[in-house]
Each structure stands twice: as structure tokens, then as C-alpha cells.
Amino acid sequence: MAHILPTETQDAGPPAVDQQRRGPAGYLLLMPGSFWLALFFIVPTVTLVATSLYDPAGSLELGYKMTGHVQNYPTAIADYWEQIWRSLRYALVATVACIALGYPLAYAIAFKAGRFKTILLVAVIAPFFTSFLVRTLAWQYLLGDNEWFVSFLRWLPFTGADLRLINTPFSVVAGITYNFLPFFVLPLYASLEKIDHRLLEAASDLYASPVKGFLKVTLPLSMPGVVAGTLLTFIPAAGDYINAELLGSPNTRMVGNEIQDLFYAGDYPTASALSVALMVTIVVLVAVYVWRAGTDELV
């Protein structure tokens, strides 16, 4: 049973409540990590909100004044709503693409791969080990104007001879999809792997067709994996700007590009306000989504 990868169905369920120890030991184990997270995740988030309310007249050298300058928000949103909206759109399209590509893959590995399961799982995580920026540059090459893929597409009868992929929204979304696909496939696979095969046999015994068995048994039982996977895809995708920079053009800039540039320009209040605005938008969207999906057992 001792594998790095989750290859076997875990038959021992979670320990029953009475098998867990009470007392202060739990807190002691939890404390060092929680301290780190509190100090370097919670405190920074509070600082970010505070910084977003500084007077934008200050600068890094002269210092900022805390004036509760709420006006930073309307200013940031008015200037960059286009990039915010574009980021959400790209992230949504990439997430849908991840479902379309990732579900068949996770399903094939969980149910159809037989003894090749471990090899395929390794293949899914393998790209992680080659630097992600180097891989994105590989896409820059693959989608380039003079490479065989674009030449092939241009040769097809229904495409124009001036078809381009690089520096278009398509290449940015394809890059984002590629980037976050493993983060969708792995939680979904974990969910599919847990499904009791006897349930599918029962469905088939009760004259359900394979398609119906999938729709009535497999799909609903895999929903926690789908929800977890879409969150791990959509949220980082909305904040990503590497694909927009390496595979896109000035017309595909996302909100991450702008936040980063504002920090570089030294405009900390506006950058922070834009960052908080992005975070709040995502939290609201995710809360609605999780509530609609009806799964609260994500963690």
C-alpha cells in the first residue's frame, strides 16, 4: 500500500471520531505551521487592504500617509475594468476547456488504464518538473507564425492564409488551459478513484445503459472532484499574467500584468486596491459557485 501515487482504492475509511485523541497535543502540532500562515498570509492580506487605503500622493521613498483614501478603488476599477473583465473571461474559458479535456483523461486513467495507471499518472505530473516558464516558451515556439502547426492550419481549405495563433487571445487561453490542466485532473482523478465499482455494476444490473450509468452514478459521485478541480483552475488562472505576457499581445493584457506594473512603477496604493478588488471578485464568484454546486466537503 505504500505508494507515492494514489494507485489503489483506500478501503480503510477515515478514522472514527472516538479514535482521535483529545487534549492540547493537537494544538501544539498545529501551532508552528499556523503561526507561519498567520504571519505571512493573514497579516500580509490585512496590510494589503491597509495599503490600498493610503494616500496615493505619497511614494515609496517619502512614505505614504494613511488617509482612508477609499477613492483608490473607483479609480483603479475605472482604469482597469477592461483587464479585470478580460481576466475573468479568459479564466472561465480555460476552466471550461480544462473540464472538456481533463474529464476524459481522468476518467480514462481511473477506469480504463488497467495496469498502466501508474505510468499515466506519472505522465500527468511529469510536466510539473520541467520549469513552467520554459514550457510556456516552448508553446511560443510551437504556435509561432512559421512553424508547422500554423502552416498546416493555413493549408486547410477553410482557414485564411494569414491565420495567426501567437499573440492572440487563443494562444493565451490555450496556454492557461495547458498550465492548469494537471490541477484539474488530479483532484478529479482522486474523486473518480474512490467510486465503488459495485455501484456501477448495480446500475447495469438494473438495466441502466453505460451512458445512463455514467450520468446517474459516476458523474454525481465525481462532483466534489470537479468542484475542487475547477477552483484550483479558475482562481490561479484569473490572477495569471505569464501566459498573457509570453503568448499574448498588448491587447490580451490581464489584471495581473497591470498589478505587477503598478508595483514596479511604485504606485502601491492603486496596485493594492486593484489586487484587493480582484480578490473580492474571485471570493464572491467562488462563494456563489460552491453554494450552487452544493458541495462543502472540499477540504
Binding site: 498570509f41 495599503t51 495581473g256 480578490m279 477540504v299
Partner: peptide, 23 residues
């Protein structure tokens, strides 16, 4: 608390930390 950092865009975490360090 443990799930939150995984569900926060990197750009937000990065800017929060920078805000903390600068302050």
C-alpha cells in the same frame, strides 16, 4: 485556514507580502 492560500491568486499573495515587507 489551510485551504485559503491554495485558493488565492498568486498575484494577490505576492502583492500582500510585498505590502507587508514594504510597510
Amino acid at each position: 485556514f489551510i485551504f485559503l492560500p491554495m485558493a488565492t491568486p498568486e498575484i494577490v499573495m505576492g502583492s500582500s507580502l510585498l505590502a507587508l515587507f514594504v510597510n
